[in-house]
Each structure stands twice: as C-alpha cells, then as structure tokens.
Design a protein around this nucleic acid. Structure first.
Lengths: 216, 216
DNA sequence: TGCAGCTCGGGCAAATTTCCCAAGCCGGAT
DNA sequence: ATCCGGCTTGGGAAATTTGCCCGAGCTGCA
C-alpha cells in the first residue's frame, strides 16, 4: 500500500450498471493518479475481483440486486481487514451510512456529490483516512445529536419485533404472537425507530432488509 | 434533423447525479458522432436547457427529485412535439415503461444495458425511430401476456408516490417533491394500500420491492 | 354530451404515534 | 449487600395519521 504515491491508486469499481461503471472509469482515469484495475457488477463477484487485483480502494454502490452491498463490505473486510472501501451510492439515510461504516467501510459518498469530491474521497480513503461527502456529514451530525447506532444497538425483543414488523405483520399479530399487549409492541416500534434513526416505517423495512434481518 | 449525419447528434443530458452525468458525457463523446451540448439536474431545468440548445435527443433519467421525470417528458413534448426523448433509468417495471412511452418518450433504456446498446438507442431515437433495450422489450412482452401485477391497478401518480414512500421518504418530503398538499399524499397513501391490499406500510414496501419499483 | 377515471384536497371520527413515566427483573460493578 | 444500568413490560396524554366519504376540475372517449 505504500507504493501508492509512486504508482497511483488502483481502484475496483463495483456497481450493477455497466454504463455507470464505464462513466466512472473514465472520470477516475482522467485524474491521472487513479487506475481502475477491475470492475464487478454484483456483491458476489466483488470479493473475487478484490482478491485477484488487490486494489487500493474499492468503490462500491450498496444498492445492488442479489446479496446486499453491506454483506459485500463485511465479506471483503472479514478476509482482508486492510481493504479500503468507499461506498458510493444515491442513498443518504443515516441508518444506512452507519450500517456501512460499522460493516467496515472507510468512506461514504453520495452520487449527488461533485466529481471532485468523489475523487478526493478516493484519495483520502487510499491514505487510510475516513471520508464522507458534506451531505453525509450533515446527516450524521444531526442524527448523532441524539446518539443511537444501527441494528446492533437493539435488544433481543426489539430485533424480534423488527423482524416480524418488516416481514409484514400487523401490530396486533405481533402482540398475539409474542404474547404482549398492543401497547408494548407500539412502544417497541417507536423505540426501534428512535434507536435506529429511521424516520419512517419504510426506512425501517429497508434497514431490516439491508441488514439481512428479512428477505424480500 | 436531416443534418444529423453531417454534424453528428446533439444530446441534452438530464440526471440528478453530477458524476453520473460527467461519466455519460465522456462515454457518449468518445463515440465521435455524439455531442453533449447541455446538462440539467432536474426536471424544471430540463425544458429551459432544451429550448436553449434544441438538442437532437434528450437523454433523461426519470427518477429525479422535484417534478417527476414523466412530467418533464410531457412538458417538453407539449411545447416541442418533435423532441426526441430517450429515457435512461435503472427502473425496469412495465408500468413505468408504458407510462413513459405514453408521456411521449421515444425510447427506454435501462442502466443495466451495455454502453453500446445505449449509444445505438440514441442513434435510433435521433433517426425518429422507437428504441428500447432488450430487457425492456422482454418485460413489455411478458407483461402483455400476463394478467398483470398488483401495481397495474395504480395510476402514474400513485406509482410515483409509492416509489418515493417505499424509498424511505416521509409524507412531507413527498408532498414537497411533488408540490402536493400533505393531505393529498396521505390520501394517495391510503388509496394505494386499499388498491394493492396491503394492510401495513411494511407490506407496501415489500410489494414495491418485489415489483421492482424500489431496490433495497 | 355524457360517462368514466385520474388528480387533488377538505372533513372528521377512530386509531396510531410520540414521548414521558414507572415497575419488575437481572447482571455486573462497588 | 447494594446500587447502577439496561431490558422488558405497559400506562397516559397530546399530537398526528389513518380510514373513509365527499366534491370539483380535468381529460379522454364514446
């Protein structure tokens, strides 16, 4: 990794849209010091490409079909802890950002960012620094005023209720199934939302899905 | 339009992600005959850019904040019926494709397509032909055979609201994006639930995901 | 011309969400 | 032993949303 300064930064691009990859490749390579050494269009291939090319930075869109991008991050980091992964996606929900970082990402940049911001984020990540775009920093800052992390902050009961809820069960069904009062389930529902930072039931479902709690 | 062969094809790029536009621009311009004469990052600016530059083809991503891309299509076509619009998006649901064509699009290409397919679609559209990528043709074909999914009962507005809702947007955000009152969005929310038979927001999100309306 | 369907929103009772609070339980720290 | 903190379980009350009904404007179509 110390040869970065001499040889430039090698990049693995992971995105499920060919033209998008193609475009990124051109934007990055026009920088001179960035070289796209491989591409992958799904989470499963990402690790294989990583192993084969040992890139300095993985630029990865977490909204892909198939295995979640979060799993791809965990996958790569589990076997190559020194991997640098920059998440690059259109999503900007605090829960997702936190989940990505706790899965082992080094940076998080939205597609709304200027190209220059993306490029400098790649360089930062290659240097081993943490990087995120301004909008993400804003969202995290606001979110963190009340603290609360992602799924691992949830207790046993909360996880169970979230799973059933995200699976499509009504409050009454959950209460009946777990032998709780409706009120208690409602309270858990609220608690889970505040703990995860989800502002909407839909965000909750998405969180559960991206964390592998439910399959859709 | 007959000077296309002599001067190449001028293109207006409409997409809300700067790097994505940047990338497309490079991919298209590397073709030699395609020239990106303007860009826009929202539906509102799209018509202004169209009027100012009179491009041969508008390449447009319909999943943008602000006015829906479908409205942008109608907007442009209403005032310039000879405009050629190629929808270029990650979405691939039959309902959306049909809506786009009936709004006046000349072509529909998914981001999963190979760059060469996108480029040739642009050339086809510039010649006044209809164009769509293979996956879209497949989906339309299957759709016309099958009884139709739960989403077929929904109108355009309902689809748009469902997409944003399932994507994690709050009622207020949707109302602001689409310039509707909160009450209207709430009514649509309710209507969508009754039409699709979903008893829970979570079920709605799952439905949207399984129908390909949203990616998780 | 008239019907049908989409879009947009008001109204209002019923339900849910949002917070705040309390109590019992349990594990760990002092 | 005792206390602290976190989990689980629920009550209460205000704020908001939902569920459902309604009407009006518009468009396309017969």
């Amino acid at each position: 990794m110390s040869e970065v300064a001499a040889t430039g930064i090698s990049v693995l691009l992971v995105d499920d849209h060919p033209i998008v990859r193609q475009g990124y490749r051109r934007v990055l390579e026009s920088q001179g010091d960035l070289h796209v050494v491989a591409e992958a269009d799904n989470a499963a291939d990402a690790y294989g490409a990583f192993k084969a090319h040992d890139p300095d930075v993985v630029v990865l869109d977490i909204s892909m079909p198939g295995a979640s991008g979060l799993e791809a991050i965990r996958n790569i980091r589990a076997r190559s802890p020194r991997a640098r992964i920059l998440v690059f996606t259109m999503h900007n929900e605090a829960v997702l950002v936190k989940a990505a970082f706790s899965a082992g990402a080094s940076g998080f940049v939205t597609k709304s960012s200027e190209p220059s911001a993306v490029v400098s984020a790649i360089r930062s990540v290659a240097r081993g620094e943490r990087a995120m775009s301004d909008d993400i920093a804003h969202i995290l800052a606001e979110d963190s005023l009340s603290a609360g992390s992602a799924l691992d902050q949830l207790g046993e009961r909360e996880i169970e209720i979230l799973r059933q809820f995200a699976g499509g069960a009504t409050t009454e069904q959950i209460a009946a199934h777990l032998n709780l009062s409706v009120k208690t389930v409602q309270n858990y529902h609220y608690l889970i939302k505040t703990k995860t930072g989800a502002r909407t039931d839909a965000q909750l479902v998405r969180l559960a899905a991206t964390c592998g709690l439910t399959r859709i």
